[in-house]
């Protein structure tokens, strides 16, 4: 399956348990390994992530579980605040 990279920009990002994380603002490419290194995520969910000075976060692509109409991230315990309660 092939997708245009511009189709990934703007997708909404959720955790496996359905919590909104943010929106894909850019894609980090690893040119030497010829693969996606990570996603730059903006419009963050302020309940999940402490937004202080930074506008976005960068998530390694190995944490991405699936990409379709939205991006779903694998559940990592304690990755986000409050996630231990899930």
């Amino acid at each position: 399956m092939r997708t245009q990279i511009t189709d990934l920009i703007g997708l909404r990002v959720y955790t496996e348990s359905g919590v909104y994380v943010g929106e894909v603002e850019d894609i980090v490419l690893d040119i030497d390994a010829k693969r996606i290194d990570g996603l730059a995520i903006g419009s963050l969910n302020k309940d999940l992530i402490d937004v202080k000075k930074h506008k976005g976060i960068r998530i390694p692509y190995r944490l991405v579980k699936s990409v379709s109409d939205v991006v779903v991230l694998r559940n990592i315990p304690a990755m986000f605040k409050g996630s231990q309660m899930e």
Binding site: R2, T3, L8, K34, R35, I36, R62, V64, S66, V67
Partner: peptide
Amino acid sequence: KNIMVNPDSGQITD
């Protein structure tokens, strides 16, 4: 113009 990727593997294809 654009870059094609495989979103499952993360591979950049074209």
